[in-house]
Design a protein around this nucleic acid. Structure first.
Length: 277
DNA sequence: AGACGTACCTGACCGC
DNA sequence: TGCGGTCAGGTACGTC
């Protein structure tokens, strides 16, 4: 599930725990993608939550003890929140639980274990090893048409792969890369160096437009739930190309086919008639 | 320096 | 019903 819109939706859902206290954190499985620091359980007892922000696809929970909790949902991770008294049985792949002082807990569930749960000094966030790969957020002032053009116009890499490069712009993943390129009428195969100014400017707009619409729809839910209360996002109902290979769409008077190709081992969906090189 | 493949892991699905 | 193969929303790391 988790690209920028899904992570943003999760962060927005978490906003109402700001100001609450953490009674304790329980770790049930230490070997997710990276080991979870041991001190997360000892140092977080009776701390309070100062703020929660998103950096790319990462969630940062700042505490009042000069430490922050870092969460990345990987491919299959999600957060759930429910009343402690309602949750007698732990689900499979629940790896950690954060107990709050409002009788609720946040549960970190991640079947594939590509996610991250880390605990770092808040003062070291800027130098945090995984944040050094994070380029500007699509909604950051730094991310504009000029920045995008300068970042991609010398690259031999296909634009689809460029969009997946978090260092150039953070937060876009495999679903939204296809949807954004369809929206901007650009072929996923087009090399960065071959992009025109006009295409570049359309692309910058589409990145923001598609991600905003996705956030308004509370993100994409594939087969599993992802909202913190267990309900579904809606953006999967608005896909134009993702997972729609073989389907036809109307473009003017023409019926145009959506196809699937593979780029760097990952599926790309697009309409070759609309998105010509 | 940049481009590319690989590895990490579970589960769902498909064809035999 | 079972088994093997393929694929899935991400990304760090090794190698050329």
């Amino acid at each position: 599930m988790p690209e920028l819109p899904e992570v943003e939706t999760t962060v927005l859902d978490l906003k109402n725990i700001i100001g609450l206290s953490i009674n304790k954190i329980k770790i049930y499985r230490n070997n997710i993608r990276y080991p979870i620091p041991k001190k997360i359980t000892t140092l977080t007892k009776n701390t309070s939550i100062l703020s929660i922000i998103r950096i790319g696809k990462y969630i940062v929970i700042k505490l009042n003890i000069s430490y922050s909790i870092i969460i990345h949902l990987g491919m299959s991770g999600r957060l759930k929140m429910h009343y402690i008294k309602d949750s007698i049985i732990r689900e499979k792949h629940d790896h950690a639980e954060i107990f709050l002082n409002n009788d609720k807990k946040i549960v970190f569930n991640d079947p594939r274990r590509f996610g991250i749960l880390d605990f770092i000094k808040t003062s070291s966030i800027n130098g945090y090893k995984y944040f050094s790969n994070q380029g500007p957020d699509p909604f950051d002032k730094k991310f504009n048409e000029k920045y995008l053009f300068n970042s991609i116009s010398k690259s031999k890499t296909p634009i689809k792969n460029i969009l997946l490069n978090q260092k150039i712009v953070s937060g876009i993943g495999n679903i939204y890369a296809s949807e954004i390129l369809f929206d901007s009428k650009i072929s996923p195969l087009l090399k960065g160096m071959d992009i025109t100014k006009e295409q570049n400017n359309r692309l910058a707009k589409s990145i923001k437009r598609i991600l905003i619409i996705a956030i308004k729809n509370k993100g994409t839910s594939f087969k599993d739930h992802f909202l913190i209360d267990g309900t579904l996002g809606n953006y999967q109902n608005r896909f134009k190309v993702y997972n729609k290979d073989g389907k036809y769409i109307r473009i003017g008077k023409k019926r145009a086919k959506i196809v699937k190709i593979v780029q760097s081992g990952r599926s790309t969906f697009y309409c070759p008639y609309l998105q010509r090189i």
